[in-house]
Simulated assay, not measured.
Amino acid sequence: MRALLRRREAAPPRRWARRWNDRGVSMLEFAGFLPILLVIGMAAIQLGLIGYGINQAGTAARAAARVASQNGDGAAAGAAAVSGWLSPQVNAPKGPDTTTATVTVHVPAVIPLFRGWDVTRHATMPSDH
């Protein structure tokens, strides 16, 4: 029994020596993978902002076309329907039968390598006579 215990006590130093040499490896792996995780996170945020810009542009185009078709100031209504930081450009000329409004918003870039995107949406409403 004592011989068996001595053999077990003799073996662990090799395993422990190997274990101590692996210290910090997981931290280095995480540090190497962290920039990739950050880029993926920023890309997800950017896609969310682009979706928000598309939604805002569509809402503004519908509001501008509705107000302009009723002889109102469609450009002001479209600009009021959008968050100001998207810098909306609204064009809502009234036609004889239909009014088509066009709204373009600029979605800023989260990732510094890009300049941002312009999103354009159109909406058409029948004109009141």
Rank of each mutant, 00 (worst) to 15 (best):
Glu29Tyr: 01
Phe30Arg: 12
Phe30Met: 15
Ala31Arg: 03
Ala31Ser: 11
Ala31Phe: 00
Gly32Asn: 00
Leu34Glu: 02
Leu34Pro: 02
Pro35Leu: 00
Pro35Phe: 00
Pro35Tyr: 00
Pro35His: 01
Leu37Ser: 07
Leu38His: 00
Val39Asp: 08
Ile40Gln: 02
Ile40Ser: 07
Ile40Gly: 10
Ile40Leu: 14
Gly41Gln: 02
Met42Lys: 00
Met42Pro: 01
Ala44Val: 07
Gln46Val: 04
Gly48Met: 11
Leu49Phe: 06
Ile50Gly: 07
Ile50Trp: 05
Gly51Cys: 07
Gly53Pro: 06
Gly53Phe: 03
Ile54Ala: 12
Asn55Ser: 15
Gln56Thr: 12
Gln56Ser: 14
Thr59Arg: 14
Thr59Cys: 08
Ala60Trp: 06
Arg62Ser: 13
Arg62Lys: 11
Ala63Arg: 10
Ala63Ser: 15
Ala63Gln: 14
Ala65Met: 10
Arg66Pro: 04
Val67Ala: 02
Ala68Gln: 13
Ala68Asp: 10
Ala68Val: 10
Ala68Met: 10
Ser69Met: 09
Ser69His: 09
Gln70Lys: 00
Gln70His: 04
Asn71Ser: 13
Asn71Thr: 09
Asn71Gln: 11
Asn71Arg: 11
Gly72Asn: 13
Asp73Arg: 04
Gly74Tyr: 01
Gly74Pro: 03
Gly74Gln: 03
Ala75Glu: 11
Ala76Arg: 06
Gly78Met: 03
Gly78Glu: 05
Ala79Ser: 14
Ala79Gly: 10
Ala80Gly: 12
Ala81Arg: 04
Ala81Cys: 08
Ser83Ile: 11
Leu86Ala: 09
Leu86Gly: 07
Ser87His: 14
Gln89Ile: 10
Val90Gln: 03
Ala92Gly: 09
Pro93Cys: 04
Lys94Glu: 05
Lys94Val: 07
Lys94Leu: 02
Lys94Ser: 11
Lys94Ala: 12
Pro96Ser: 14
